[in-house]
Design a binder for these strands. Structure first.
Lengths: 150, 150
DNA sequence: AATAAATGTCAACAAGACTGACATAAATAC
DNA sequence: GTATTTATGTCAGTCTTGTTGACATTTATT
């Protein structure tokens, strides 16, 4: 039984998110803010509904977090041109900067872990992750361009 | 920048823990209960302090969850022989059974993801996870026998 | 004109973290 | 042999981030 994969997955994820947690706290933010920042940076102009779908949380839950990010000038909303009901989300310069800061430690941790692997290691890890994702959500990974290096 | 690793890590972990979440809910339990069950199953006779150290939560936080698990007969405590102050944690037969149920879907998801990888894939993924863990905690991984297949 | 969709907002609630303070029993130090 | 430290438990209050349900607004669609 892959008890070791389960356990190591836990520890790896704990320390991966832990990198950002300390920095976020100083801003008065939490993991939820980080997740929103990540996806808005990844796909600028994302409508609210997409974020809800990705994070699998309710709009009421997102609203609080999003409001803080907007009020503090990290994210801005623009009305959709094609569909004027949509509120498209964009990171401001300030928001992109914060995201860079949050990502810095995570990036070096990831780079170090991959550097210790055999040549095909990075690709193998990415393939594993994709394999762990619910098949119904895999097209979403493609749309977010997370599977380009495969 | 390894934005793709970050994103896929998020999705993979979300769906990995999501497997158990549905089952846990019917029991009136949450992820915290699952984590405790996992580690108690992995290392029977673990003292409370070790669990706190691993989960990086406070004793007050653990107390609630542990109490529910004990009161419902999933875990039992025994006074340590060497150090009678310690409360060593053991899963009951009922606890082991619940853990097996919770692990079943996670196991098949992991197995499927690994089956799609090249022969060395499993080892590569495990090495990646270890590389992501804070170096100070790596001896702990060894003690928990999570690094045996490396 | 009627309905549906995308979003926002108010209110109440729950899980699971947190801090701080204090209690007990057992081990260790002096 | 008393004093201190350690391992654990418990009470009380707070915070973040999730939940549900209800209702409003704007815009698209039928």
């Amino acid at each position: 039984m892959p008890l070791d994969v389960m356990g190591l997955f836990f520890f790896a994820y704990r320390d991966f998110v832990g990198d950002a947690d300390a920095l976020l706290e100083r801003q008065g933010f939490g993991r939820a803010h980080h997740r929103v920042l990540y996806f808005v940076n990844l796909k600028p102009g994302m409508p609210v509904a997409d974020i809800l779908d990705i994070l699998k949380i309710t709009k009421q839950s997102l609203a609080r977090v999003l409001r803080q990010l907007i009020d503090n000038g990290y994210i801005e909303q623009k009305t959709g041109r094609a569909d004027r009901r949509q509120r498209l989300l964009y990171a401001t310069a300030k928001g992109r900067e914060l995201f860079e800061t949050l990502s810095a430690t995570q990036t070096s941790r990831i780079d170090a872990a991959i550097a210790a692997l055999p040549p095909a290691g990075r690709r193998t890890v990415l393939k594993f992750f994709v394999g762990m994702v619910e098949p119904a959500d895999r097209p979403l990974l493609d749309r977010l361009k997370l599977t380009e290096n495969l």
